[in-house]
């Protein structure tokens, strides 16, 4: 399938008082039509900033370099007014807290219709009809009634649906969802993930799902990308990473996640704490916590290299990942 988004060599740096911090380094990935890519990693690993930079939404002290090709335009470094013609139309983003992206003083209908009027040049009637249709499509009961509500009159799950509806109105090629279900209850989360699956199928939208929950990934993602310390450390098809992880960090994450069907006596967590980006360890950033490290890891940073055909990892260790083997 055709690639809709090709990201190449993406770096994000933030200027601090008297230093700078690199939140994302050398990120490369492609996203195919209709595909779901999960971006996984712990807090502070650079997941959000990578995609905010693609959307041109970095904080003022942030700077992005590299390329993010949406078709044949590069979104990185694009002037804000030109970005506006793509944002919301070709590429859209939704966040964990829908309230921050909805205007509390406007009716749902008004906010959503405006998107269509601006990007598609619809007249008001046509826009309103399209809005109702989309609200129904994302599973909002009584869409005509709800369209006239204000955001605070809806529950958290409803608001997240409204956000998804808004993001999908212009049938964007790429939808970026940053922890879209983290604040929701499991039963609502399940409905939401179901909805994502259907929508990517029906609209051919490529979905980037940013999350720290491997359970969410397993259910919906085709491919996944694991980030640590601002870099991608392993990526590949979801199944291969789950059943045959090759990076010690990916393995550690899997062993740290409790599983409702299996009651292990103990989890096998990764030791230690995630690094701060300002003081990334030398060599492999994961080495202070890695059970498989050896001399090379302390000095040289492993590059992200292909293993087999479909996957890549950034780790010097070539043996099998079994905890018992480690002395």
């Amino acid at each position: 399938m055709a690639d809709v988004l090709v990201v190449d060599d993406l770096d994000v740096t933030f200027a601090l008082h008297d230093s700078e911090v690199k939140a994302v380094s050398d990120l490369d990935f492609t996203l195919a039509e209709g595909e779901t890519l999960a971006v996984v990693g712990e807090s502070g690993s650079g997941k959000s900033q990578a995609f905010l930079s693609i959307m041109g939404l970095l904080a003022r002290n942030g700077k992005a370099s590299g390329r993010a090709m949406l078709g044949d335009v590069n979104l990185i470094g694009m002037a804000p007014d030109r970005l506006d013609t793509h944002r919301g139309k070709d590429i859209a983003m939704i966040f964990q807290d829908p309230m921050t992206s909805l205007n509390p003083t406007l009716k749902i209908k008004t906010q959503l219709a405006e998107v269509l009027v601006r990007h598609q040049g619809y007249d008001k009637d046509k826009a309103n009809r399209a809005v109702i249709e989309m609200l129904e499509r994302v599973g909002i009961p009584e869409p005509v009634k709800r369209a006239n509500a204000y955001p605070h009159e809806l529950s958290g799950g409803m608001r997240q649906r409204v956000m998804i509806a808004m993001a999908l109105l212009c049938k964007p090629k790429v939808l970026i969802a940053d922890e879209p279900t983290t604040a929701l209850d499991v039963t609502v989360q399940a409905q939401m993930l179901d909805l994502f699956k259907n929508l990517t199928n029906d609209f051919g939208t490529a979905l980037v799902l940013i999350t720290h929950d491997l359970g969410v990934v397993a259910g919906v993602a085709d491919r996944m990308m694991v980030m640590y310390g601002g870099r991608c450390i392993e990526k590949g098809p979801t199944d291969t990473l789950f059943y045959d992880p090759r990076h010690p960090y990916t393995l550690g994450l899997l062993h740290s996640t409790p599983h409702v069907a299996k009651r292990a006596k103990r989890l096998d967590p990764i030791q230690g704490l995630p690094p701060s980006l300002e003081h990334l360890p030398r060599g492999c950033a994961f080495h202070p916590r890695c059970a498989f490290r050896f001399e090379r890891c302390f000095e040289e940073r492993p590059p992200l290299l292909p293993v087999e055909d479909v996957r890549e990892k950034a780790c010097w260790y070539q043996g099998e990942l079994k905890y018992e083997e480690v002395a």
């Binding site: 499991v186 039963t187 989360q189 399940a190 993930l193 929950d213 491997l214 359970g215 969410v216 990934v217 397993a218 259910g219 979801t238 199944d239 789950f242 059943y243 899997l254 996640t257 599983h259 409702v260 069907a261």
Partner: peptide, 15 residues
């Protein structure tokens, strides 16, 4: 309902 909604970190089962 809760049990069927809990995310399972196992792609095959999840599907």
């Amino acid at each position: 309902a809760l049990l069927t909604a809990v995310p399972i970190p196992d792609p095959k089962r999840a599907r």
